[in-house]
Computed example of a mutant assay.
Amino acid sequence: MQSDNEKLEHSNANAAEIRHPLTEKDGELVAVMRTEAASSKGKLSGADARGSFDELMIKQLLLAGLYQFYMKMRQTI
């Protein structure tokens, strides 16, 4: 049986990774997201975590001023 690290290494083996520096605004949003996520880290997983994840992502979209854009894009899917 594979360990979690072995599974992660295998799943990342075929993935392309692109890194770029965060803008100042992105950095601020990431800091807020990390703070909000810290209180529930490790408490939920799988389908049970979906509601909390969605709520966190919507808050970030609102903070970034992108919620209306997100909703328009969702309607096209």
Rank of each mutant, 00 (worst) to 15 (best):
Q2C: 07
D4V: 05
D4R: 04
N5V: 05
N5H: 06
E6Y: 01
L8C: 02
L8H: 05
E9S: 07
E9Q: 14
E9M: 10
E9A: 13
N12F: 12
A13L: 09
A13P: 04
N14D: 09
A15H: 10
A15T: 11
A15N: 03
A16D: 07
A16H: 09
A16P: 06
E17H: 07
E17T: 10
E17R: 08
I18E: 06
R19T: 15
R19I: 13
H20W: 10
H20A: 15
T23F: 01
T23D: 02
E24V: 03
E24Q: 07
E24T: 07
K25R: 14
D26R: 13
D26Q: 14
G27K: 07
G27P: 03
G27E: 05
L29H: 15
L29F: 11
V30N: 11
V30E: 12
A31Q: 15
V32W: 15
R34L: 14
T35D: 10
E36V: 14
E36P: 02
A37M: 15
A38L: 09
A38H: 11
A38N: 10
S39D: 13
S40D: 13
S40P: 00
K41E: 08
G42A: 03
K43W: 03
K43V: 14
S45T: 04
S45H: 06
G46N: 05
G46C: 03
D48W: 00
R50I: 02
G51M: 06
G51V: 03
G51F: 03
S52E: 09
S52G: 00
F53K: 12
F53S: 07
F53T: 12
D54C: 08
D54F: 03
E55A: 05
E55W: 01
E55I: 00
E55L: 09
L56F: 08
L56K: 01
M57S: 01
M57V: 02
K59C: 00
K59F: 00
K59L: 02
Q60A: 06
Q60S: 04
L61Y: 05
L61T: 00
L61A: 09
L62Q: 06
L62D: 10
A64E: 07
A64M: 06
G65I: 13
G65H: 06
Y67I: 01
Q68N: 03
Q68G: 00
Q68V: 02
F69H: 14
F69I: 12
F69S: 09
Y70N: 05
Y70S: 03
M71A: 15
M71N: 12
K72L: 03
M73C: 08
M73W: 02
R74V: 11
R74H: 11
Q75L: 13
Q75E: 14
Q75I: 12
Q75V: 07
T76R: 13
I77P: 05
I77F: 13
